[in-house]
Design a protein around this nucleic acid. Structure first.
Lengths: 222, 222
DNA sequence: TTTTTAATGATAGTATTACTATTATATTTG
DNA sequence: CAAATATAATAGTAATACTATCATTAAAAA
C-alpha cells in the first residue's frame, strides 16, 4: 500500500479525522460543501446532514468551523510542499525550482490517487476563496502559538531558501514569498470575479508569467 | 467651512450616514469597535449600545455588518486616493509619485481634521485586519455589480497608470498593483502577528523598501 | 465468550445572532 | 399648527453555535 500522510498539527482537531472512516468522510464532504456554498454559509448541522451523520459527530472531530477550515488549509499547504519536493528532485537549478513552484501554486491540481478521500482540485479552489480567513481574526496570536499557520510558514521558508540560493544577499525572502503565495491565490480569485484587478484572462498562464517575472526581477543580483 | 466629502456608492448603505449626526456617530463608533474587538465579534446590538442608541437605528443605515464593513473600506480607499492626488501635485515624475503612494499605503495616518467623525489611523488598522473579507464571499459577483469594490479598483487603476507612464510596455499593471496594495496590508499584519512571514520589524520602513523595490524592479524597462 | 471500551447516532436544550415589526416620542419642516 | 421624519423602546422569530445526555453498535481486551 502506498498511502501518503500529510501531517497537520494536533491542535487543529479534537480527534484526528485521518484515523477513522467518519473522519475522512467529514474532510471529504466539508471540502465539497464549503467550496460549494462558501465558508460563511456552512454549519456543522449541514455537514452532518450531507454526511448522513449528525452535528454532534462533526463536533467530536473539530471544535468549530474555523478550526476545520484551518485544518483543511494547513493540509493543503503541507500537501503542496510534498508535491513540490517530488518535482524538485527532477530539477537542478534553484531558478527552475522556483519557476515550477509558482506553476504548482497556480495551476489546477489533479486528484492525488494516494489520498482518495481528498479532492485536491476542489480543496485548491477552497483555499483560493477562503485562505486569509484563518489568520485575519483577533485570535491570531493565540492560534499562532498552537501551530495554526505552520503550513504557510514552512512553505514560505522553503521558497525563501530557494531565492537565497539564487541571491544570498536578497533582503526580503519571507516578505517576497508570503506576497507571492498570497498573490497566487488572489490573482486566481480576481481573474474570475474582479477582472479589473488582474491582467489575466481565464486560464492560468498569465498569472504564472506575472508572478515568475515579479519574483525573478525582485531577487536578481544587480 | 472646508469640509471634504468622500464619495461612496449609494448601494453601500440604506440611508446615507454622512447626512445625519447619528449616521456619523455610527461610522465613528463602528470603526472604533470593529478595530477593537474584530469584525466577527461585532454585532449591531453592540454598536447600538456603544452609541447609546439601538440596534434598530443602526439597521436603518446599513443592511448588515458586511455592508457596513464594505462601506468603511471603500471610504478608506476613496480617502487614500484623495490624499494621494494632493501629494502628487507636489511631485513631478511618475516614479516619485509611485514611491510616495507606497509610503501612503503603509505609513500610519494622521487624523484628517477636515473629517472629524472619522479617525483615519484606526480605520487604516481596521482595513489591514479585515479588507479581504468584503470580497471573499459567495456574493462577490452580485456585490461587484452594486459597486462594492469600486474604491479598490479605482486605486489600482490610478497606480497602474503611473506604472504605464514609466514603462508603457509593462504587461501586468492591474495584477501588480492589486498585489502591491494587498501586500501593503498583509505585510503590516504579518509584521505584527506572524513575523516569520515578513522580514520587517516594527516600524514601516522595511515594508516600504520591500514594496518599492519589488514594484520598480517589476515595471522597469529591460 | 463475556466484558469493557470506544465510536456513533438521536435527541434535546441554551444563549446568542441576525434580523423584522410595531408603537411611542421627539424634532424638523411647511 | 399640522405633517412628516428620525429615533428610541420593545418584542418577536428563525437560525446558529454550541453543550449535554443517553442509547446503540462495533471492536478490543480479558
Amino acid at each position: 500500500m502506498n498511502a501518503l500522510n500529510i501531517s497537520v498539527s494536533a491542535k487543529l482537531y479534537n480527534k484526528n479525522p485521518e484515523e477513522t472512516d467518519l473522519g475522512k468522510r467529514i474532510l471529504s464532504k466539508s471540502i465539497e460543501l464549503m467550496e460549494e456554498i462558501g465558508y460563511e454559509h456552512v454549519t456543522f448541522k449541514k455537514i452532518g446532514l450531507a454526511l448522513e451523520s449528525t452535528e454532534a459527530s462533526v463536533y467530536r472531530y473539530f471544535q468549530n468551523k474555523h478550526q476545520l477550515l484551518a485544518y483543511l488549509i494547513n493540509w493543503y499547504w503541507g500537501w503542496l510542499e510534498v508535491k513540490m519536493a517530488q518535482e524538485f528532485m527532477m530539477l537542478n537549478s534553484a531558478e527552475d525550482k522556483l519557476k515550477r513552484a509558482i506553476q504548482l501554486l497556480v495551476m489546477p491540481m489533479d486528484e492525488d490517487e494516494r489520498i482518495p478521500h481528498i479532492d485536491e482540485g476542489t480543496l485548491q479552489r477552497l483555499v483560493v476563496a477562503e485562505y486569509p480567513k484563518i489568520y485575519l481574526t483577533k485570535e491570531v496570536d493565540a492560534e499562532n502559538e498552537e501551530g495554526y499557520f505552520l503550513g504557510y510558514k514552512r512553505l514560505c521558508d522553503t521558497l525563501g531558501n530557494l531565492a537565497l540560493q539564487i541571491n544570498p544577499a536578497y533582503k526580503y525572502p519571507h516578505s517576497l514569498f508570503s506576497t507571492v503565495i498570497s498573490a497566487a491565490q488572489s490573482q486566481q480569485f480576481f481573474t474570475e470575479h474582479l477582472p479589473r484587478l488582474s491582467d489575466a484572462t481565464k486560464g492560468s498562464g498569465t498569472i504564472v508569467q506575472f508572478l515568475t517575472e515579479m519574483t525573478l526581477n525582485s531577487i536578481q543580483k544587480r
